[in-house]
């Protein structure tokens, strides 16, 4: 096990914990950003350079920035929600996630010896996209349609403001 692997794992775990358990939402957004960057580092470590670049570009650069943006617009610190959670709900929540973690860990533990590490012959951008544009071209086209639909949907939803009719 390499030093870098352990370092990345520890960092990812720390930032993920901060994401979930931080009281301030802006801090959890920044922690999510760092988690995503660390996952990008893991991709690099696993040999898929292109995916790590995409991860930083899309997830850390665009998705996380949207979160930070919205959190700064909606300042939750000003309107705190003080309703108490019922104890039983909390226990069930923790139990659910612990059980699922246990099951997953058990599955991984039972199969970890059979997992091999294959050196990818060619994980360059060209090899990846050769496959994307031949075998996967229909999902790819559908994904572009999905993105277009998302853009249109966001514009429609954001413009749907009856109190202040915006200029067209």
């Amino acid at each position: 096990m390499m030093f870098v692997d352990v370092l990345l794992t520890v960092l990812t775990v720390a930032f993920a914990l901060l994401t979930v358990f931080s009281k301030k939402t802006v801090i959890s957004a920044f922690a999510l950003l760092m988690t995503l960057v660390c996952i990008g580092g893991i991709y690099y470590q696993l040999g898929s350079v292109f995916l790590s670049a995409i991860q930083v570009l899309v997830n850390a650069g665009a998705v996380a920035i949207l979160f930070v943006f919205v959190m700064m617009l909606i300042d939750l610190e000003k309107y705190p929600n003080n309703t108490e959670r019922s104890k039983i709900k909390l226990i069930i929540t923790v139990l659910t996630s612990l059980v699922s973690l246990g099951v997953l860990a058990l599955i991984i533990n039972n199969n970890i010896d059979t997992i091999t590490v294959v050196n990818l012959s060619d994980s360059s951008m060209k090899a990846l996209f050769d496959r994307l544009f031949t075998q996967y071209y229909i999902p790819f086209e559908l994904a572009t349609v999905l993105l277009l639909a998302a853009v249109v949907a966001v514009v429609v939803i954001a413009n749907n403001n009856k109190q202040h009719p915006g200029k067209e």
Binding site: A53, V56, L57, A62, I65, F69, M125
Partner: peptide
Amino acid sequence: DLGIFFAFAVSALGSYGIL
């Protein structure tokens, strides 16, 4: 060999400092 791509991926983070 992803030089240009890497540079833009990283400079996409540029707005965080200001934000």
